[in-house]
């Protein structure tokens, strides 16, 4: 029952054989050795499995792999250099253990793409579906504000 799909993964054209019930996280891990998106709650609540599909954040553990056909998929492994968001998370110490960080970074990218200068309420709204068990929330919010400034080149 496997079927071939083609899509772009972190900028490269790729193809994969996927089963109908296979999730995007399973495909990324087992098919491409990418472990940045990881399943944690399995219910769309925690955000650890966040992946960008055509610029929109999705829960990779609840997203069928076959649905990314012809899409642009971006994971935390995208790009050779750190972007403004990643740099800001490092400078503001927006993490402790780092398990949730890929999800926070990718969700922050969608936020800043849609709202380049977010208020604290905007930040909390967009990140309410990402859980940090270490409780680094104040630092994460500071990191997002810093990332917004960095993107504007301030």
């Amino acid at each position: 029952m496997r079927r071939e799909i083609r899509f772009r993964l972190n900028g490269e054209a790729v193809s994969a054989q996927v089963a109908p019930h296979e999730t995007l996280v399973e495909l990324l891990q087992e098919g491409f050795g990418l472990y940045g998106a990881r399943e944690s709650c399995g219910q769309g609540l925690c955000g650890c499995c966040t992946v960008l599909v055509d610029g929109r954040a999705v829960s990779g553990c609840l997203y069928l792999a076959s649905l990314v056909e012809d899409s642009d998929v971006r994971t935390i492994e995208d790009g050779g250099e750190l972007d403004a968001v990643q740099q800001a998370f490092i400078e503001a110490s927006g993490f402790q253990c780092g398990f949730c960080t890929p999800g926070f970074v990718l969700m922050t990218r969608q936020l800043l793409d849609e709202i380049p200068d977010p208020s604290e309420d905007d930040i909390k709204h967009y990140l309410s579906g990402n859980l940090c068990r270490c409780g680094a929330y104040p630092e994460i919010i500071a990191a997002v504000k810093l990332a917004a400034r960095k993107r504007k080149g301030v």
């Binding site: 769309g44 955000g47 929109r56 954040a57 829960s59 969700m107 709204h125 579906g129």
Partner: peptide, 12 residues
């Protein structure tokens, strides 16, 4: 809708 789950879930 703004109070329904989270942005990532509403995206899909």
């Amino acid at each position: 809708l703004r109070t329904l789950s989270n942005v990532r879930v509403r995206n899909v």
